[in-house]
Nucleic acid binder design. Structure first.
Lengths: 84, 84
DNA sequence: GTGCAATATACTTGATAGCGTATAATCTCA
DNA sequence: TGAGATTATACGCTATCAAGTATATTGCAC
């Protein structure tokens, strides 16, 4: 199951889903990585200014990692091509 | 080949590799997304405080995307070796 | 080794993340 | 519906990003 994100909002949605899947509250998660519940909340809400190291902290706490890959499906051009 | 990152440094290394593969200079890349050459430099160097939206801008400019997945197995040493 | 392109670093400035602390809003079930 | 749990938001504060501008340093051809 590969979830990709191109915007902070999409990223936040993934994190929230994964956190819940892991059965954690924002409070628990934040406590493990020395970030406040409020910070987790903002990240999950898709605040664009989140710092990469904060993101990586959260991923680590959820035992996730970040993968970089080429944009395959779903560029505007390709989507448009599907309907020509 | 999926390149994954757990630290800002690893992330920067991936971005640099991909930028060069795409034949861009930091100046060109930054120009396309309204970020300075100096900013690209810092991100590629693994400055930990980089903002997520800046990262996403760079990924977009390189036609890459970010994927979240469960952490793969491997010792820290093995993982480090991937970035040497 | 010279010269140019590419990358790294420096200084000031405005904007904002994340902190501590706290409260408000919302969700979840009995 | 109401209580408790969870999440969102507020305020003052410090740290720092990224901008503008500029310069220093490195890398690579020739």
């Amino acid at each position: 199951m590969h979830q990709f994100a191109r915007t902070p909002k999409q990223l936040g949605a993934i994190l929230r889903r994964e956190r819940r899947k892991a059965g954690n509250t924002q409070e628990e998660l934040g406590g493990r990585i020395k970030h406040r519940q409020a910070t987790i909340s903002k990240v999950e809400s898709g605040e664009p200014g989140t710092r990469v190291d904060t993101l990586l902290d959260i991923l680590a706490a959820l035992n996730l990692e970040l993968v970089i890959r080429p944009r395959t499906k779903g560029t505007p051009e390709e989507i448009e091509a599907l309907f020509r």
